[in-house]
Amino acid sequence: MAAACARSLVKVGWTILESPALRRPGTGALLSGNAGSHVSRRSYYYGGAGPGARSGLLRSLLGGGGGGSRALSCAFLLGGGVGLYHTVKFYWAQQRQLAQVPAPDGPSPSASPSLTLYQYQTCPFCSKVRAFLDYHGLAYRVVEVNPVMRREIKWSAYRKVPILMVDEHLQLNDSSVIISSLKTYLISKGSSMSDIVRCYPEMKSVNDSGKEVTEYNNKYWLMLSQDDAAAVYPDKGMQKEEMKWRQWADDWLVHLISPNVYRSAGEALASFDYIVREGKFGALEGFFAKYAGAAAMFVIGKRLKRRHNLQDDVRQDLYKAVDDWVAAVGRKRKFMGGEQPNLADLAVFGVLRVMEGLEAFDDMMANTKVKPWYQRMQAATRNHDGCSRLSR
């Protein structure tokens, strides 16, 4: 989380220092930017600061003259630089410990491939993948990617996370493709991962902002034989229901995280206080990272609220979404999958748990009916309940 925010702060600081308005003596900090910035796939870094986001942020924060603006710019740069320093330090410390990290508790299938997950810890899409792996008791190695430099994935043409490497040679991109491919592999007999992945071809297109985007065909489908599909989805409509809510988690629920985490200046500050504690910042460097980062992400959170047409009180959108999910599960089922979670359960759980420890999460638990289901999901993933259901 600290590294992703550091990346935003460094970019914002450089934008201020390099602006023509700041370079001319006696000129106020009047910056303009492009409106078509893209949204990052990180929970607390979600909605990252592209040019339009930076200019909107700076117009809100830099109302004074050049001297005050330069001082605030330095604060942004220092805060971002400090975050980057600690991210790199944490990464190398983590690499030294990788050989000592034990596999998850519980059995894993003997035919399970070697898995390496490249991720950001607080990314909701990465959390979805971890929820799936943990539930099924699959051993995997984690590589935390530095979101500023991204050296850990410099070998990949695909520059996002999560990335899952299978047996060190097969690369799987996109959280939903990763989950669908692995689930198909665990159920099907005689199918190789290479063959399965070919069922999820890439499709490249250009979005409204003129940026090339990559999507994947069939990513919510499991590629199963008729007999396997009947065993996994014994009741009519189960497969369509699972696919519908998996897509809902990606297309709607994810977009509610950042506006709620950074809903107010106080919540933004509390979120960055958590970032500083996790990053083990010193008193002075933590001060800059905490306050500059909180200010930046508070403004970006407001932009995301407008972009996704959320209510003034974004909590209400979160509460409604979560209660809609609980209503879809119903009173007669422990999970949407029945007695055991299905892929929709794991997706929704993976997205929601990135808020744990923050005010938004506590409010959600207190003001919705999600708590019993959520606690069952915590137990199912912690105990690797999916191990006993693997047929491979």
Rank of each mutant, 00 (worst) to 15 (best):
R130C: 12
R130N: 13
A131W: 04
A131E: 00
A131Y: 01
A131C: 07
A131N: 02
F132I: 12
D134M: 14
D134H: 15
Y135S: 12
Y135Q: 11
H136P: 07
H136V: 10
G137R: 05
L138D: 00
L138G: 02
A139D: 12
Y140C: 05
R141E: 08
E144L: 13
V145T: 08
V145Q: 06
P147F: 05
P147W: 04
V148Y: 06
E152W: 05
E152R: 03
E152D: 04
I153P: 05
K154R: 15
W155P: 10
S156E: 10
K160F: 09
V161P: 01
I163S: 03
L164Q: 05
M165K: 15
M165N: 10
D167A: 10
D167H: 05
D167F: 09
E168T: 09
E168L: 02
H169M: 02
L170I: 11
L170E: 07
Q171M: 11
Q171V: 08
D174C: 03
D174V: 01
S176M: 13
V177A: 07
V177F: 03
V177T: 08
I178V: 10
I178N: 06
I179L: 06
I179R: 03
I179M: 12
S181M: 09
L182E: 00
Y185T: 03
Y185P: 02
Y185Q: 01
Y185K: 01
L186Y: 07
I187L: 06
S188K: 05
K189M: 00
K189G: 08
K189Y: 00
S191E: 11
S192P: 02
M193H: 06
M193Q: 09
S194P: 02
D195L: 02
R198K: 14
R198Y: 01
C199L: 12
C199S: 15
C199Q: 14
Y200C: 06
Y200G: 09
P201M: 07
E202Y: 05
M203Y: 11
M203W: 09
K204C: 15
V206A: 11
D208R: 15
D208E: 15
D208T: 14
S209M: 14
S209D: 15
G210P: 08
G210D: 07
K211T: 14
E212T: 15
E212R: 12
E212Y: 06
V213N: 00
V213K: 01
T214R: 13
N218W: 04
N218P: 02
Y220H: 14
M223T: 07
M223F: 10
L224N: 12
L224K: 11
S225G: 14
S225C: 03
D227C: 00
D228M: 02
A229I: 01
A230H: 10
A231D: 11
A231H: 12
A231R: 14
Y233N: 01
P234N: 04
D235G: 00
D235S: 12
D235T: 07
K236R: 13
G237Y: 10
G237R: 09
M238F: 06
Q239A: 14
